[in-house]
Amino acid sequence: MATKKKTAPLGAKPVYKSSASLLPWFGIALVIVLLDQVTKLTVERSFAYGETLPITGFFNLIKVYNPGAAFSFLGDAGGWQRYFFTGIAVVAVGFMLYLMKKHSSQRLFCFALALIMGGAIGNVIDRLAYGHVIDFLDFYWKGVGHFPAFNIADIGISIGAVLFIMDELRRVNKS
Protein backbone atom coordinates (compact mmCIF):
# COMPACT_ATOMS: atom_id res chain seq x y z
CA MET A 1 0.00 0.00 0.00
CA ALA A 2 1.49 3.32 -1.06
CA THR A 3 1.51 6.26 1.31
CA LYS A 4 0.54 9.71 0.20
CA LYS A 5 3.07 12.46 0.59
CA LYS A 6 1.60 15.59 2.19
CA THR A 7 2.37 18.84 0.42
CA ALA A 8 2.12 22.38 1.72
CA PRO A 9 -0.54 24.64 0.18
CA LEU A 10 0.67 26.98 -2.55
CA GLY A 11 2.54 29.95 -1.15
CA ALA A 12 2.96 28.38 2.29
CA LYS A 13 6.41 28.04 3.77
CA PRO A 14 7.49 24.46 4.37
CA VAL A 15 7.60 23.41 8.02
CA TYR A 16 10.87 21.87 9.12
CA LYS A 17 10.64 19.63 12.12
CA SER A 18 13.72 18.30 13.80
CA SER A 19 13.60 14.88 15.31
CA ALA A 20 16.68 15.57 17.43
CA SER A 21 16.06 16.25 21.10
CA LEU A 22 17.35 19.33 22.90
CA LEU A 23 17.65 17.35 26.14
CA PRO A 24 21.35 16.42 25.71
CA TRP A 25 22.22 20.07 25.10
CA PHE A 26 20.28 21.16 28.18
CA GLY A 27 22.16 18.48 30.12
CA ILE A 28 25.53 19.84 28.99
CA ALA A 29 24.52 23.39 29.90
CA LEU A 30 23.31 22.15 33.30
CA VAL A 31 26.63 20.39 33.97
CA ILE A 32 28.50 23.64 33.27
CA VAL A 33 26.15 25.61 35.54
CA LEU A 34 26.46 23.07 38.37
CA LEU A 35 30.27 22.80 38.14
CA ASP A 36 30.51 26.57 38.00
CA GLN A 37 28.26 27.19 40.98
CA VAL A 38 29.77 24.45 43.15
CA THR A 39 33.32 25.70 42.54
CA LYS A 40 32.33 29.33 43.14
CA LEU A 41 30.49 28.43 46.33
CA THR A 42 33.52 26.45 47.53
CA VAL A 43 35.85 29.39 46.87
CA GLU A 44 33.36 31.85 48.39
CA ARG A 45 33.21 29.84 51.62
CA SER A 46 36.89 28.85 51.78
CA PHE A 47 38.74 32.07 50.90
CA ALA A 48 38.75 35.63 52.12
CA TYR A 49 38.45 38.25 49.40
CA GLY A 50 41.82 38.57 47.64
CA GLU A 51 43.25 35.51 49.39
CA THR A 52 45.60 33.51 47.16
CA LEU A 53 46.57 29.85 47.33
CA PRO A 54 49.61 29.09 45.15
CA ILE A 55 49.22 25.76 43.31
CA THR A 56 52.10 25.79 40.80
CA GLY A 57 54.69 28.25 39.53
CA PHE A 58 52.12 29.60 37.06
CA PHE A 59 48.72 29.02 38.71
CA ASN A 60 46.96 30.21 41.87
CA LEU A 61 43.51 29.94 43.31
CA ILE A 62 42.32 33.41 44.29
CA LYS A 63 39.01 34.91 45.33
CA VAL A 64 38.17 38.07 43.39
CA TYR A 65 34.96 39.70 42.25
CA ASN A 66 34.22 41.05 38.80
CA PRO A 67 31.27 43.47 38.62
CA GLY A 68 31.93 43.99 34.90
CA ALA A 69 32.21 41.71 31.91
CA ALA A 70 35.25 39.97 30.43
CA PHE A 71 38.56 41.45 31.63
CA SER A 72 36.52 43.63 34.08
CA PHE A 73 35.07 45.65 31.19
CA LEU A 74 32.86 48.35 32.77
CA GLY A 75 33.70 46.98 36.21
CA ASP A 76 33.73 50.47 37.74
CA ALA A 77 30.62 51.76 35.98
CA GLY A 78 28.58 52.28 39.13
CA GLY A 79 26.22 49.29 39.22
CA TRP A 80 24.02 49.66 36.14
CA GLN A 81 26.25 47.19 34.27
CA ARG A 82 24.95 44.36 36.51
CA TYR A 83 21.52 44.65 34.93
CA PHE A 84 22.87 45.45 31.48
CA PHE A 85 25.04 42.31 31.32
CA THR A 86 22.27 40.21 32.88
CA GLY A 87 19.85 41.43 30.21
CA ILE A 88 22.31 40.71 27.42
CA ALA A 89 22.86 37.20 28.78
CA VAL A 90 19.13 36.48 29.07
CA VAL A 91 18.52 37.63 25.49
CA ALA A 92 21.54 35.61 24.30
CA VAL A 93 20.30 32.46 26.07
CA GLY A 94 16.89 32.89 24.44
CA PHE A 95 18.51 33.27 21.03
CA MET A 96 20.73 30.24 21.64
CA LEU A 97 17.66 28.17 22.54
CA TYR A 98 16.05 29.24 19.27
CA LEU A 99 19.19 28.33 17.29
CA MET A 100 19.53 24.99 19.07
CA LYS A 101 15.91 24.14 18.28
CA LYS A 102 16.29 25.21 14.66
CA HIS A 103 19.58 23.35 14.14
CA SER A 104 19.23 20.55 16.70
CA SER A 105 20.70 17.94 14.36
CA GLN A 106 24.01 19.86 14.06
CA ARG A 107 25.91 18.33 16.94
CA LEU A 108 29.04 20.48 17.15
CA PHE A 109 27.02 23.67 16.70
CA CYS A 110 24.61 22.72 19.50
CA PHE A 111 27.42 21.49 21.74
CA ALA A 112 29.17 24.85 21.36
CA LEU A 113 25.96 26.74 22.12
CA ALA A 114 25.26 24.51 25.15
CA LEU A 115 28.69 25.33 26.61
CA ILE A 116 28.20 29.06 25.99
CA MET A 117 24.67 28.94 27.39
CA GLY A 118 25.78 27.10 30.55
CA GLY A 119 28.54 29.64 31.13
CA ALA A 120 26.23 32.58 30.55
CA ILE A 121 23.66 31.19 32.99
CA GLY A 122 26.37 30.51 35.59
CA ASN A 123 27.56 34.11 35.48
CA VAL A 124 23.98 35.46 35.47
CA ILE A 125 23.30 33.54 38.67
CA ASP A 126 26.26 35.33 40.27
CA ARG A 127 25.17 38.74 39.03
CA LEU A 128 21.65 38.26 40.38
CA ALA A 129 22.72 36.67 43.69
CA TYR A 130 25.79 38.78 44.53
CA GLY A 131 25.91 41.74 42.14
CA HIS A 132 29.21 40.51 40.71
CA VAL A 133 30.83 37.39 39.24
CA ILE A 134 33.13 35.30 41.43
CA ASP A 135 36.44 34.53 39.72
CA PHE A 136 39.10 32.25 41.17
CA LEU A 137 41.40 30.76 38.50
CA ASP A 138 44.59 32.84 38.27
CA PHE A 139 47.22 31.97 35.66
CA TYR A 140 50.41 33.98 35.39
CA TRP A 141 53.91 34.01 33.95
CA LYS A 142 56.73 35.29 36.13
CA GLY A 143 58.08 38.57 34.86
CA VAL A 144 55.14 39.00 32.47
CA GLY A 145 52.13 39.22 34.76
CA HIS A 146 48.77 37.68 35.54
CA PHE A 147 46.02 36.81 33.09
CA PRO A 148 42.69 38.15 34.44
CA ALA A 149 41.15 35.67 36.89
CA PHE A 150 38.25 33.62 35.55
CA ASN A 151 35.92 30.74 36.47
CA ILE A 152 34.30 27.56 35.12
CA ALA A 153 31.52 29.54 33.40
CA ASP A 154 34.16 31.53 31.51
CA ILE A 155 35.85 28.28 30.47
CA GLY A 156 32.51 27.00 29.10
CA ILE A 157 31.97 30.23 27.19
CA SER A 158 35.52 30.23 25.81
CA ILE A 159 35.55 26.59 24.71
CA GLY A 160 32.07 27.00 23.26
CA ALA A 161 33.19 30.05 21.28
CA VAL A 162 36.20 28.18 19.87
CA LEU A 163 34.00 25.21 18.90
CA PHE A 164 31.45 27.58 17.37
CA ILE A 165 34.17 29.15 15.19
CA MET A 166 35.53 25.71 14.24
CA ASP A 167 32.03 24.59 13.26
CA GLU A 168 31.51 27.68 11.14
CA LEU A 169 34.89 27.30 9.42
CA ARG A 170 34.08 23.66 8.71
CA ARG A 171 30.72 24.64 7.26
CA VAL A 172 32.28 27.36 5.08
CA ASN A 173 34.96 24.98 3.80
CA LYS A 174 32.30 22.42 2.80
CA SER A 175 30.52 24.91 0.54
Score class of each variant (00 low, 15 high):
residue 57 G to E: 03
residue 117 M to N: 09
residue 150 F to V: 07
residue 56 T to Y: 07
residue 134 I to W: 00
residue 136 F to G: 08
residue 68 G to I: 05
residue 61 L to F: 13
residue 154 D to I: 08
residue 121 I to G: 03
residue 83 Y to T: 10
residue 77 A to Y: 05
residue 153 A to L: 10
residue 24 P to T: 11
residue 97 L to Y: 12
residue 103 H to I: 07
residue 34 L to Y: 04
residue 72 S to V: 05
residue 47 F to N: 00
residue 167 D to S: 15
residue 79 G to I: 04
residue 36 D to Y: 08
residue 12 A to T: 14
residue 145 G to L: 06
residue 15 V to F: 08
residue 42 T to D: 10
residue 24 P to S: 10
residue 7 T to W: 04
residue 8 A to Q: 15
residue 15 V to L: 14
residue 47 F to T: 00
residue 123 N to E: 08
residue 53 L to E: 11
residue 126 D to Y: 05
residue 77 A to C: 09
residue 15 V to S: 08
residue 55 I to E: 06
residue 149 A to C: 12
residue 137 L to Y: 05
residue 43 V to L: 04
residue 28 I to D: 03
residue 32 I to A: 00
residue 47 F to A: 02
residue 99 L to G: 07
residue 162 V to H: 04
residue 102 K to Q: 14
residue 51 E to D: 07
residue 11 G to K: 02
residue 88 I to T: 02
residue 115 L to A: 11
residue 157 I to P: 09
residue 132 H to F: 14
residue 144 V to H: 05
residue 47 F to L: 06
residue 106 Q to D: 15
residue 135 D to L: 07
residue 91 V to A: 14
residue 54 P to L: 06
residue 58 F to E: 01
residue 143 G to I: 02
residue 57 G to F: 03
residue 65 Y to R: 03
residue 94 G to V: 02
residue 32 I to V: 14
residue 133 V to I: 12
residue 36 D to C: 07
residue 91 V to R: 11
residue 54 P to K: 08
residue 115 L to W: 12
residue 25 W to R: 08
residue 15 V to Y: 09
residue 67 P to R: 02
residue 106 Q to L: 12
residue 66 N to P: 00
residue 69 A to S: 04
residue 98 Y to R: 15
residue 91 V to F: 15
residue 159 I to L: 15
residue 68 G to A: 06
residue 45 R to T: 01
residue 144 V to K: 05
residue 90 V to R: 08
residue 72 S to P: 00
residue 156 G to A: 08
residue 140 Y to V: 06
residue 70 A to F: 01
residue 1 M to H: 03
residue 169 L to C: 13
residue 174 K to C: 05
residue 169 L to T: 09
residue 7 T to I: 12
residue 88 I to K: 02
residue 75 G to M: 01
residue 67 P to V: 07
residue 95 F to M: 15
residue 152 I to C: 10
residue 11 G to T: 01
residue 113 L to A: 07
residue 43 V to C: 04
residue 112 A to S: 15
residue 143 G to Y: 01
residue 170 R to K: 15
residue 166 M to P: 04
residue 87 G to Y: 06
residue 137 L to M: 15
residue 23 L to E: 11
residue 87 G to V: 10
residue 143 G to H: 04
residue 39 T to H: 09
residue 120 A to T: 14
residue 20 A to Q: 08
residue 102 K to R: 15
residue 133 V to Q: 05
residue 16 Y to C: 01
residue 118 G to Q: 10
residue 124 V to G: 01
residue 82 R to D: 01
residue 70 A to K: 00
residue 83 Y to G: 08
residue 100 M to Q: 14
residue 13 K to F: 05
residue 30 L to I: 15
residue 38 V to D: 00
residue 99 L to S: 14
residue 100 M to F: 07
residue 36 D to R: 06
residue 54 P to Y: 02
residue 127 R to P: 06
residue 95 F to R: 08
residue 97 L to I: 15
residue 61 L to Q: 09
residue 107 R to Q: 11
residue 17 K to D: 09
residue 81 Q to D: 03
residue 80 W to N: 03
residue 144 V to C: 00
residue 172 V to D: 12
residue 119 G to T: 13
residue 171 R to L: 13
residue 65 Y to D: 01
residue 2 A to N: 07
